[in-house]
Write a protein that binds this DNA or RNA. Structure first.
Lengths: 359, 359
DNA sequence: ATAAATATCCAAAACGTTTGCGGTAACGTT
DNA sequence: AACGTTACCGCAAACGTTTTGGATATTTAT
């Protein structure tokens, strides 16, 4: 049924070698022959069988992307946007994207081992980097290429793109201080994640800058979900001396926090300030619109993918480590309600901060 | 470097045939030999190369899932949850999930053709069904298995799971009528989608039930995104005789609508009622919590996947078409603000409505 | 004892494509 | 004409695994 290279060769009275080499652009096939082959292959609808190419070339032209689930529901818009970026770049590069969604620990390990051992993908994109990341050691040992969004303390030479969460949160604290807040809480995430440490450090930097003492009672741990933010905020608001501002480690945390505050009868923006990190779409549409530290997730997805494919194909990377500056977007959740509402300004995306080296 | 079946055979002084047949459980290999083979393969870390198996068996054990993008940002939580369900089931069945994110029209067609022609996947899961769906015709003609979430008018024998959006919206209208609303608007989606027609029909059914005349000025088209809902609602609220209730065709539309209403100074729940369809997590965390018609997206993802794999493997399906009843979840966005707030009730998931035939 | 049946292994081919290297015709130089 | 070079094609092997059907030793039945 499907047309094979043998059919094309027979049709043209050529060998399969010649057809293959012609289609691949080898210079030892006459140009006139080549045109004939291309024409016939198109007319006959010939497309190489992926499995055969994979086997012969020892390449799958597939990228692996294993998403972590940290709760029972996987609905983090961050990952959808990231995946869209990755997906667009894999398509552009004639690669495929193989996705798996697993919970950390053994299921995750099993997944990676299965994909590596069966030579299912040419490389991986890693997300949610950990300070000590077993994936890096494992993939390096197996000689499997990978690129990451975020860094780890595990020594590695793999390419990565990070966003300076430390500086971003520091700036956010600065903004809150400038709004008059001095009792600022921070809802974090599991301590093994790099982003947890970085953003907590940024929080502390910001307090230092403002000459505000660090109070450990104002730091709670969430799990990067709305529910985590909601529960931590409930706890904070029950305190004798509740904070007047809350920073959620990511937008989902901050959105959960917003909900808890509103359920307590607080007016977010007037009675309490709440801010997040990511700049997901839901943040700009929330009520009130959420102040956040924006990172261009879609574009990062694309660029990580470029880095990985460049590595897989053995080409040189102009830069192996990129650290992007995020941008603070101030919206109503950290501003007094009486200020005028300018929706157009609130919706603006930041000017891009990418160096042009990956374009 | 990687261990091949030849290495195992040599190690045991057996042929590769015997090793292969032993691992595959063929009954013409002695049990003692089989145990020896299994033990050695494990100790040597042998895992079959996927490409070789694919080529020989003409099977990739991969499911294709092509997500549509209707806007510039792909962040619909609906698809994350669906994909999680699909991903979990593919893992369980020892399949892989190949994901592509493309915009409708030519890019989508190119993607399907590429995946089909290169025999890249064993079958597809289709989402966002259209009344006239070229994908059904194409895949049927190519003899490629597929299962769908939702139905189409295009004749086909493929298995599908649908949710009765017509009945769900009808019930929602009934609820709004019972709250005293008679001027109810409906923000739809592109007319080629099956869900557009079904849910619009449900809206009209509900109006008929209540003896309310259908007013075409109260029906606008969105695009299933927050922005679509936001803009349509802006338009509706500028009317001389604005509606007192708005149904968004999906939760994102309703969330955008909520934002537009709030920006106009309306109190959602008291001044205007807004409701959606899906039951995504963001709806229960919105302010106010959104009334919605709930469908269990994750579980649907899993079940569609079971249907497809059952088909691929040539087994009989107990049922080829399933139509689930959604459940109305009433929250604050359609109730007067003075009513008591019961967060626990608002968070409750509906009892499951699945027939047990797919369990 | 002989013939038939069974258990259990293995050679070879299959899957579809790509690649290295050789064969040979044509062309260019002496 | 003879020799060397180039153009351009094709044979055969490779990739790793699975499957078909045959070979042969052992067991069972007559």
């Amino acid at each position: 049924m499907p047309v094979t290279i043998r059919d094309v060769a027979k049709h043209l009275n050529l060998s399969v070698t010649t057809v293959s080499r012609a289609l691949a652009g080898h210079d030892d096939v006459a140009e006139s022959t080549r045109q004939r082959v291309i024409k016939a292959a198109q007319e006959m609808g010939y497309v190489p069988t992926h499995a055969a190419r994979q086997l012969r070339r020892q390449r799958t032209e597939t990228i692996g992307l294993v998403f972590p689930t940290l709760g029972s529901r996987f609905s983090d818009p961050f990952f959808s946007e990231f995946m869209a970026g990755v997906g667009d770049e894999t398509s552009r590069s004639n690669y495929d994207l193989l996705v798996s969604v697993t919970s950390p620990g053994e299921p995750e390990q099993t997944t990676y081992q299965r994909l590596v051992n069966s030579r299912r993908v040419d490389g991986f994109i890693l997300v949610r980097m950990r300070l000590d990341d077993w994936r890096i050691r494992y993939l390096s040992q197996q000689g499997v290429p990978f690129a990451s969004f975020g860094r780890s303390q595990t020594v590695e030479n793999n390419p990565s793109i990070g966003v300076d969460g430390r500086a971003g949160i520091q700036e956010l604290v600065r903004h809150l201080v400038s709004m008059g807040h001095s009792r600022i809480a921070f809802i974090g995430a599991p301590a093994d994640l790099t982003l947890s440490r970085d953003r907590l450090n940024g929080y502390q930097d910001g307090l230092d800058d403002a000459g505000i003492d660090f109070d450990p009672n104002l730091v709670l741990q969430g799990n990067l979900t709305r529910t985590g933010g909601y529960e931590a905020t409930k706890t904070l608001l029950e305190r004798k001396s509740p904070p007047s501002a809350i920073i959620g480690i990511n937008d989902l945390t901050a959105l959960g926090s917003t909900r808890a505050a509103q359920e307590s009868g607080l007016i977010v923006g007037r009675d309490i300030a709440i801010a997040g990190f990511d700049g997901i779409e839901a943040s700009e549409h929330s009520h009130p619109p959420l102040t956040t530290v924006y990172q261009p997730v879609y574009d990062i997805g694309r660029k990580v993918c470029v880095m990985l494919i460049t590595q897989i194909e053995g080409r040189e990377l102009p830069q192996t480590h990129l650290l992007l500056k995020p941008k603070l977007i101030v919206r109503q959740s950290t501003m007094d309600r009486d200020l005028p509402v300018h929706p157009q300004n609130d919706n603006s995306e930041p000017e891009t901060y990418f160096p042009s080296s990956l374009e």
